[in-house]
Design a protein around this nucleic acid. Structure first.
Lengths: 228, 228
DNA sequence: AGATTTAGTGTCCCAACGACACTTATAGTA
DNA sequence: TACTATAAGTGTCGTTGGGACACTAAATCT
């Protein structure tokens, strides 16, 4: 492995992918298999390949696919983190992405990475992550909480059809506090983003209405405050 | 594992700096003095100097200072624009910043750039800008309008002490529509971000109360919808 | 002194939402 | 079959923020 010395800063992409499992918010991490931070858990990311990636979003998607086998349901730019000290190899610039997905177990037999794993967010402080990835995750989490208050983003943590109860649980998990079911239904109604389907049962209760995203709806354009 | 050889994309920083003059929203542009797009108007920006810039924000500030002589009152990351076609020299990645400043005339005798000038936003469509800068400005404008609705950001287009009337004019210029003075005063009150000072007159009317940002207030953390 | 102009207030109404009690539908179990 | 637990969904009150707009206040101009 050749040690590279940059006169130009190194530009990389990192992904903070969230999913909800077992009523907990999880982040997808990969164990590094190279120096620096060999064997440390880190965010899945990498370097842009100008022959493969039509833009940085495509790069982020490709890296996620390649390193974790998963494809996010939602992806957006979070923020650029930069400086001379965040990578021991020298000045580096990283564009962090923020991604959501319905929880999917990961198989860790992906090439080039020894391990892939979902980690509950509330256990991350026990780990020492590579680079400033702990810091990046913290920012991503804050963004997720912000957006959960005033947008419908959390639906990307659910399958394509879902019930109000499921969405309520997801939002509560993200926010770490309870919300009013009534308020959520009003939001769903007012957003005009969803259609109904048949029915579906749940653990010992009345059957819940299934909702579904209307095709071609831009979910990021709904503004309403909740529990602020 | 084999170390792959990548053609590294060019990473640059571009600044969309807004100011209000003559009841119009203006963008600061510089005339390029090199290929490609020689003599085209463009956003002031450049490449990171790892010896000078402690991070990308510092780079953005330095480039603005160096190319235009102005220092923004507010600066935040906008978005990363990337792809193989936005720069004829090849694959490029640009982090765009979004900046605000009380209007200040520019002197165009800055080294390395032939001209610097404020351009009214509503005249930009008459120009052909370098690269995808028109596109970037469009995004920045949308962001500015969004934030003008639910934050106090527009105060950065005013001197450190200002009147409600001035702020009203600034917001109306940004949004392109009138807002209620009463509503604005309620927002100022509710935000708890400002203190009062003495008085000041205006063209043929009652003297207006001068407001001032409280020290150490993070202006980005006020959420309230206006005119949405 | 009166007109004009801008600053600031008082008040009505409506929309959004938290809170919470109430009704409805389903599964489990006696 | 009835009773109970549980989750889904509704009705409604009260609060809050903000649009609309008329009103008062203070300054300049003629």
């Amino acid at each position: 492995m050749t040690e590279q010395h940059f006169t130009l800063p190194l530009f990389t992409v990192d992904n903070v992918m969230f999913a909800i499992d077992n009523a907990k918010l999880n982040v997808l991490l990969v164990k590094r298999a190279a120096e620096p931070y060999n064997n440390y858990w880190s965010l899945p990311g990498g370097v842009v390949d100008v022959t493969l990636d039509k833009d940085v979003e495509a790069c982020a998607m490709r890296k996620l696919q390649q390193k974790t086998g998963l494809t996010p349901a939602y992806l957006e730019q979070l923020e650029v983190f930069s400086g001379p000290d965040r990578d021991p190899r020298g000045y580096s610039i990283s564009l962090a992405f923020f991604a959501l997905l319905p929880y999917t177990p990961v198989s860790s037999n992906i090439n080039s990475v020894s391990h892939v794993s979902w980690w509950p967010l509330d256990q991350l402080h026990q780990l020492t992550l590579a680079f400033d990835h702990q810091h990046i995750i913290h920012h991503a989490h804050q963004r997720l909480q912000q957006k959960a208050l005033y947008s419908m983003l959390p639906v990307f943590c659910l399958p394509s059809t879902f019930t109000v109860g499921q969405l309520k649980t997801v939002i509560e998990t993200i926010l770490g506090k309870e919300i009013q079911r009534k308020s959520l239904m009003r939001r769903i109604e007012a957003s005009n983003m969803f259609t109904l389907t048949e029915q579906k049962q749940h653990s010992g209760g009345r059957q819940a209405q299934l909702y579904q995203l209307k095709p071609g709806v831009n979910i990021t354009h709904f503004n309403r405050n909740m529990g602020a």
